[in-house]
Nucleic acid binder design. Sequence first.
DNA 1: ATCCAGGAACTGT
DNA 2: ACAGTTCATGGA
Length: 302
Amino acid sequence: MNEKDSESYIDICPPTEFDFSECLVFLGRSEHEVLHQVRDGCLYKLVNINDEMILLKIRSSLGSILVELPMGPSSESARVEVVSYIREWFDLDQNLNNFYNAVSQDMVLGQLVHKYYGLRMICIPDLFEALTWAIMGQQINLTFAYTLKKRFTEHFGECLSFKGETHWLYPTHEKIAALDVEDLRKLQFTVRKAEYIIGIAKAMAHGEINKQLLLQKQDYEKIKQSLMDIRGIGAWTADYVMMKCLHHSGAFPLADVGLHNALKIQMGLDRKPTIEEIKEMAAHWEGWQAYATFYLWRSLYE
DNA sequence: ATCCAGGAACTGT
DNA sequence: ACAGTTCATGGA
């Protein structure tokens, strides 16, 4: 490539324990996903960098992560932001060796970490998205949750068309804070979920909740409690957000149905394990419960 | 038709 | 603190 073209590419060197194709399996798990696309080994994602929409085309190349900017070159500052976005999205600043060492002798996970070696947490860097996506998924099947997310995004998010494909940005909390419950009811959100989501949007618009504020607190329980103080966020959602957005590898959504099903299958049980049984199994996962959960979710997709 | 889904708030004890 | 009830809708 010549020098001008090189400004349209960004090369990211991943840590040793990283397998892009494993991550793609997880990213491609739903047909109804609107916030990214997987096609021919490439991952397409529209991001908002300094209020500018930038389309990313991401693939693996010679052991590194190659990010192409199909719309053309971007400023140096935007490129720096793109790199930090990708590092966060794929949780690249986590030392997975510590996880692998911790669970190598584990009955269930010992197999899975070998099978899915290099899989990293696929994160949700945007706090508003992480919180509200978790709420959409509460107590309904995943397929319908994706339908809700798609409607929500296509009604209130921004989009950009490029080469015949439409790419979407998740709605901002500013936009949602101005809605009424009735606006979301039309999209088949329940009254309660509509209230939760708009309430969170307003709290974020008022600056009562933000990612920096949460990340400042060091104590795990304090962060979790401040999340649970928000209406609509219980223990499951708080842990989900801590694992998918705040990068806490020790977060553990114990009540998660997907976790229960995966354990049932992996352990060959004829029923789902109880919470107490899960706590026992998880005794060896200390500090890595989020990754253990994520690898177990991954095991449900094949 | 019937069960239940990547739960949480509310209510009564 | 703890257990039971309500919400509320689509997928399998």
